[in-house]
C-alpha cells in the first residue's frame, strides 16, 4: 500500500465519519425540536451574583434541602416550582404502591394482613392497621417461634417503595448486628397494611423480649423511600409511644440502611440489658 492509497482510505473514512456525525446531529436536532429532555441538572437554577460564586455548590453539596434556588421578586423561579410539583406528584402516586412478593420471598418473609381492608380505609382508620386479622393471628401462631429474644417484623406502612428500596441493604446488616451482639431471632414475617402499633398485637401473640419493626414512612419529596425502625422492649397491649425507640429517615440520602441495620443490634442489646425502651432507655 503506498502513500496515495493510505491517503485515499483516510479520506474515505473521514468522509464517512463526517456523514455519520452530521446524521447524528441531525437526529439530535430533530429530537430536540420535538421533545424536551429534563435530567437533574436541567432543574438547577443559579444565584446570579453570589458573594462567593464557588460557595453555592459547596452549600448545596451538604444538604438535600432546596437551597440556592434564587427568585423572581419574592417568588421562586418557574423550574423550581415545577420540580416541587413533580416530586409531590411522585410521592402522591407512591402512597398507593404495593411490595412485590418476589422481594419478600428473597428473605423468606411470609405475609399476614391487618384489618385495614383497603388503602382508603387504611388512611382514614389507623386503628384498623394496628390489629391483625384472625387469620393472621392463626398463621403467626402456627409458623413462628414463641417467646423469641428478638422478633423482626417488616411492614409496608405508608410507603411500599421504602421496603423495595431499603430491605436488601438493611436486612442482612440487621442479621449481622444481631449476631455481633449475641442476640437470637425468632421467625420474621411481613405485615400488609401495618401501623406502628401493630407491634403491640404481635407482642401479645409472640411475647418476644424485644421487637423491631421495619416500616415505610409517609413519603416526602426528597425521599419517597424513607423507612423507620421502631423498637420496643416487651411490646404489649397498652404500650405508649414514649416506650418505643425509633430510628427514622432510613434511606440512601439519610441514615444509610446498612448503617441503620448495623446499629439496631446495639440498641436492642441495650434494651435487653436495661430492661427498657423509649425515653427511659439511655443510649
Amino acid at each position: 500500500m503506498n502513500q496515495a492509497d493510505i491517503q485515499q482510505i483516510v479520506e474515505k473514512v473521514m468522509m464517512e465519519l463526517q456523514t455519520r456525525i452530521s446524521q447524528q446531529s441531525e437526529d439530535k436536532i430533530d429530537k430536540d425540536e420535538k421533545s424536551f429532555h429534563y435530567t437533574a441538572v436541567d432543574w438547577l437554577t443559579h444565584v446570579p451574583n453570589p458573594k462567593f460564586p464557588e460557595g453555592i455548590d459547596e452549600l448545596r453539596k451538604v444538604t438535600p434541602a432546596r437551597i440556592g434556588v434564587w427568585r423572581t421578586g419574592t417568588r421562586p423561579l418557574t423550574k423550581t416550582i415545577l420540580k416541587l410539583q413533580l416530586d409531590h406528584a411522585a410521592a402522591v402516586d407512591a402512597v398507593s404502591g404495593e411490595v412485590l412478593d418476589s422481594l419478600l420471598k428473597e428473605f423468606n418473609l411470609f405475609t399476614v394482613e391487618t384489618c385495614y381492608e383497603n388503602k382508603e380505609v387504611y388512611l382514614k382508620r389507623p386503628d384498623k392497621g394496628r390489629v391483625l386479622t384472625e387469620e393472621a393471628v392463626k398463621t403467626i401462631q402456627e409458623r413462628c417461634v414463641k417467646k423469641p429474644q428478638v422478633q423482626i417484623v417488616v411492614s409496608d406502612g405508608l410507603s411500599a417503595s421504602a421496603i423495595e428500596a431499603n430491605l436488601r441493604d438493611i436486612y442482612p446488616a440487621l442479621l449481622d448486628s444481631l449476631e455481633v451482639n449475641g442476640l437470637t431471632q425468632g421467625t420474621p414475617f411481613f405485615v400488609k397494611g401495618g401501623r406502628v402499633a401493630c407491634m403491640d398485637h404481635i407482642g401479645e401473640i409472640l411475647q418476644p423480649e424485644v421487637l423491631v419493626l421495619l416500616i415505610g414512612e409517609r413519603p416526602g419529596l426528597v425521599s419517597a423511600n424513607s423507612m423507620s425502625a421502631y423498637m420496643c422492649y416487651r411490646p404489649r397491649k397498652g404500650t405508649v409511644e414514649s416506650e418505643r425507640t425509633v430510628i427514622s429517615n432510613i434511606h440512601s440520602g439519610g441514615t444509610h440502611p446498612v448503617e441503620a441495620g448495623a446499629y439496631i443490634g446495639t440498641v436492642l442489646r441495650k434494651m435487653i440489658d436495661q430492661k427498657a425502651s423509649g425515653v427511659r432507655l439511655e443510649l
Partner: peptide, 22 residues
Amino acid sequence: GVAMADDCMLNYQSLSFHDIAT
C-alpha cells in the same frame, strides 16, 4: 419556613422562605 417548603427530614411540606417574604 422551610427551603422551598420541602422538609427533607420530616417528609412533609410547609411554607417556603419565599412565601413568608411574599
